[in-house]
Design a protein around this nucleic acid. Structure first.
Length: 201
DNA sequence: CAAACGATCGGCT
DNA sequence: GCCGATCGTTTGC
C-alpha cells in the first residue's frame, strides 16, 4: 500500500512524476488524516534544468534535502505565502524532485475545508486545485521539509490504492518563464479529466 | 547589510 | 484579466 523505497530510488524523475499520478498523498497532522488522489505533477531535475532550485548542483541550506535520497519531503515557501510540497526522488546526491500540483480530495474533507476556507463558503473544487492550495488543505508546512516519508509514523506519506491515472497529458511547467528554454520542456503531467478515470458511470 | 526575487493565490475590475 | 500580498533565500555591493 505505502510506496516502497524502490519507487523513489530511480534516476528517471520524469517517469516517477508520471507514475505519481493516481497515487494517494496522505497526511496525519493535528490528529487528523487527510488524503487526496494526485492528479497533477511537475518534474525538476538538476543539474541542467534552470527551473530547478538545485540548478548546476549548487547546494544551499534550502535545497540540501533535494540531494538526499528519494522518499524525503522538500517543502519550501513561495512568494512569501505558499508552502509548496515536493517529493525528492533519485539516489543520494541527485537533486531531483517532483512538485505535487493538484489533488482530488478523498478523506478528511471537512478538515481541508477548515484549513483552506476557515468557515467561509467556497467551492470544494478550490480545495486542492494548486500547489499552494493543496499544501494548505493537507496541513503541509515548510517545517516538514526533510521528513522521511518511508519511515513508519511519518506525518506525510504516499500510497498506491490501485487507482488509475487514466489518460495523461504532458505540457510545459507553470510559472518558470525565467528559466529560458527549460520552461518549454513538457515536464508537467496531469490526468485528462475529459477521460473516464476511477468511477465514471 | 540591502535588495531583488519568486515552482501562487484571491480579490477586484 | 490584472495586481498586490508577503517573507525566506539568495545575491550583490
Amino acid at each position: 500500500m505505502k510506496l516502497p523505497p524502490e519507487f523513489f530510488l530511480r534516476s528517471d524523475v520524469l517517469t516517477v512524476a508520471r507514475e505519481l499520478l493516481g497515487k494517494v498523498l496522505i497526511t496525519h497532522i493535528d490528529g487528523v488524516i487527510t488524503a487526496g488522489r494526485i492528479i497533477e505533477t511537475e518534474a525538476y531535475l538538476a543539474p541542467d534544468d534552470r527551473a530547478c532550485h538545485a540548478f548546476g548542483n549548487r547546494r544551499t541550506n534550502r535545497t540540501e534535502v533535494m540531494f538526499w535520497q528519494g522518499g524525503h519531503a522538500y517543502v519550501y515557501l513561495c512568494y512569501g505565502i505558499h508552502h509548496l510540497f515536493n517529493v525528492v526522488t533519485g539516489f543520494e546526491n541527485e537533486a531531483h524532485a517532483v512538485l505535487i500540483r493538484a489533488l482530488e480530495p478523498l478523506e478528511g474533507v471537512e478538515m481541508m475545508r477548515e484549513r483552506r476556507f476557515k468557515g467561509k463558503k467556497r467551492s470544494d473544487a478550490l480545495l486542492a486545485n494548486g500547489p499552494g492550495a493543496l499544501s494548505q488543505a493537507m496541513g503541509l508546512h515548510t517545517r516538514l521539509t526533510g521528513t522521511n516519508m518511508l519511515l513508519p509514523h511519518s506525518p506525510v506519506w504516499i500510497e498506491d490504492r490501485g487507482l488509475s491515472a487514466g489518460e495523461i497529458i504532458a505540457g510545459p511547467r507553470i510559472g518558470v518563464d525565467y528559466a529560458g528554454e527549460c520552461a518549454l520542456w513538457p515536464w508537467r503531467f496531469l490526468v485528462d479529466s475529459q477521460q473516464s478515470t476511477v468511477d465514471s458511470p
